[in-house]
Computed example of a mutant assay.
Amino acid sequence: MYGAMKVAIGGPLKLGFRPWVEGLENVPAEGPAILASNHLSFSDSFFLPAVLDRKVTFIAKAEYFTSPGVKGKLTAAFFKGVGQLPVDRSGGRGAGEAAIKSGIEVLERGELFGIYPEGTRSPDGRLYRGKPGGLARVALATGAPVLPVAMIDTEKIQPPGKVMPKLMRPGIRIGKPLDFTRYQGMEQDRFVLRALTDEVMYEIMKLSGQEYVDMYATAAKRQITEAAKAAKAADKGEKAEKADKERSGS
C-alpha cells in the first residue's frame, strides 16, 4: 500500500512543486536511521517521503485515523498509506511513551523514523527549542544514527487561511548522520537528553538558516494567541470608547 500511495502522492508533488534536495547521499540505503526535521508546514510529512527512495514513518495524531464517515475512512487510509502511525497525544506522559515505543519499533525493523523535535509546527518560521524526551530517548534506546533535516519554504506553500496552495519550489537539506552511541545507557540522564537534542537542533539551524529561539514552540504559540486576544480586546475597548464619546458629544 505504501508503494502505491507514494506513487499516487509523491509523483504529483514532485512534478507540481519540483522540490530541490541536498544531501540525499546521507540517507543510508538500508538499516535504521532517524530523520530529525524542523517543522514549518503540514506538508513536511509528505515532501520528505516524496524525495526519499526508502519508506519513512512519522507519528500522526490518532484523530486522523478514527474520524467517522466516508471522509474519515479515506483520511485514515491516506495516512496509513503514506507511512504514518497513529498515536493518541492527548494523554500527557502516556502519549509521549506511546510515541517513543512506536519509534523504537520502527527502528528495530531496520526502517527510517521521522520526528519533529520541536513537537509542533513553528508559529512564525523560526526554529524553536527541541523537546528532549522523544528524539533523544529513541536515539539512545536504539543506537540509530540521527540525520538532521531542514525543510525550507514549505510554510509559504499554503499559509494559514489559504485554501489553494501556491506552486513554488520548497527545499530539503539532509545533513550528515550524527552518532550518539557514546551516550547509550544514559537514557535517564536529563542533561544527556538535553545535550543530544541541542546538538541536533544546532545542526538543523545550520542547514535551514532559521533564526533560533530558545523556548518551546508550544509556549510561543500561547504567547501569540494571548497577544492576539489582548490586541482584539484593546481594539474593541477603543471602539467602545470612541462610540461613547460620539454619543456624549451629540
Rank of each mutant, 00 (worst) to 15 (best):
Y212H: 02
L24Y: 11
Q184E: 09
I34D: 00
G96D: 13
F42N: 12
E22V: 08
G3Y: 08
N26D: 03
G114Q: 05
A220T: 07
D198K: 10
Y2E: 10
D44T: 06
A233N: 01
V106C: 09
F58P: 01
L167V: 14
A8T: 07
K242C: 06
T197E: 12
G130C: 10
A227Y: 09
E105Q: 14
H39F: 02
M1Y: 09
E108Y: 08
A76N: 05
V106Q: 09
G237A: 15
E203L: 00
D88N: 14
R169Y: 04
A139L: 05
T57N: 15
L167P: 08
G91Q: 14
I104G: 04
A139I: 04
E199F: 00
R194K: 14
R89A: 09
A62W: 01
A234K: 14
R182M: 12
G133M: 09
R173E: 02
L74W: 11
V51S: 01
P160L: 01
K61G: 02
D153E: 14
D214I: 13
I104A: 04
G23P: 05
I34A: 04
G134F: 13
I224T: 10
K232M: 08
K245C: 03
V213Y: 06
R109W: 13
F46L: 05
G175H: 07
R169F: 02
I34S: 06
G23T: 07
Y216T: 04
L127M: 12
G161Q: 14
G11F: 09
P12L: 01
F113Q: 03
G125S: 05
K245G: 00
G96H: 11
N38T: 07
I157G: 01
K156V: 03
L85M: 07
G237V: 13
E246W: 10
A240M: 15
G11D: 00
L196V: 15
F17M: 10
T225F: 14
I157W: 00
A217G: 02
M1I: 01
R126D: 15
D153N: 12
F78L: 02
M168Q: 12
T218S: 14
H39W: 03
R121T: 03
V27G: 02
L167R: 14
P177S: 11
S102A: 15
G175K: 09
L107N: 07
V146Q: 11
Q188S: 11
R222T: 11
M1K: 10
G143F: 04
A227L: 13
V70R: 03
F78S: 00
A139M: 04
E203V: 02
R194Y: 09
L107W: 05
G249N: 11
G11Y: 07
M164D: 02
G83D: 05
A29T: 07
